[in-house]
């Protein structure tokens, strides 16, 4: 896989998420492009680099989304989404063998799984951070359960948006330089090729 393409893609996706913002928003539920990009890589890249690619996506997400501190200042914390995306990717990797990747719905399902696990990870890390530092959680004054529900609904929205994003990303597959390990065995079916 070409890392330069991956870095550019995750940064572009994070920038578009930051810019488009309310376009894919219903109430507090917001769909994002970045999870689809990370899942696209997680399904196509060699397993040994999936975790690193997901962490790069998490870093891009952290850089574009500063946390608001209790004193009203904004601080970029590069970490929570890195861990969250790693958790999401580790949930998607076992699905690679189960999913029929030509089916857009299965890709969308993988995005939902990724986003749901990433949300759980982000909420957990945020709670740990607030417990360790004695600071407020990012979703204050809303409740943690409310935030979890919003995040899970957003995961579903990510899946719906993923249908479109995957359609676009699939057409860019040649420039990603994914290694193909599919062996073509000679046979009657290929004699006409």
């Amino acid at each position: 896989m070409r890392w330069s393409v991956h870095f550019l893609a995750v940064l572009l996706a994070a920038a578009l998420d930051a810019g488009l913002g309310g376009l894919f928003e219903i109430g507090s539920i917001r769909a994002s492009i970045l999870p689809s990009v990370v899942v696209f890589v997680a399904l196509a890249a060699p397993k040994r680099i999936v975790m690193r690619a997901a962490m790069a996506g998490g870093l891009a997400c952290d850089l574009f989304a500063p946390t608001v501190l209790a004193d009203g200042s904004a601080l970029v914390v590069p970490g929570p989404h890195i861990l969250a995306f790693a958790l999401g990717a580790s949930a998607v990797v076992p699905l690679r063998g189960l999913l029929y990747r030509q089916n857009p719905v299965s890709n969308a399902a993988a995005v939902v799984v990724f986003s749901a696990f990433a949300s759980l990870g982000w909420i957990s890390i945020s709670i740990v951070r607030s417990a360790v530092l004695g600071s407020a959680v990012p979703w204050w004054p809303a409740s943690g359960v409310g935030e979890l529900l919003v995040q899970l609904m957003s995961a579903l929205a990510d899946g719906v948006l993923g249908l479109v994003v995957f359609w676009v990303l699939t057409r860019t597959k040649p420039i990603w330089g994914f290694e193909s390990k599919t062996r073509l065995a000679p046979g009657v079916a290929r004699e006409g090729l």
Binding site: G19, G21, S28
Partner: peptide, 14 residues
Amino acid sequence: VVAGDPNGPHGVVR
């Protein structure tokens, strides 16, 4: 206004 918070509707804007 060039960017909002990619993670939610109520975050900071740039």
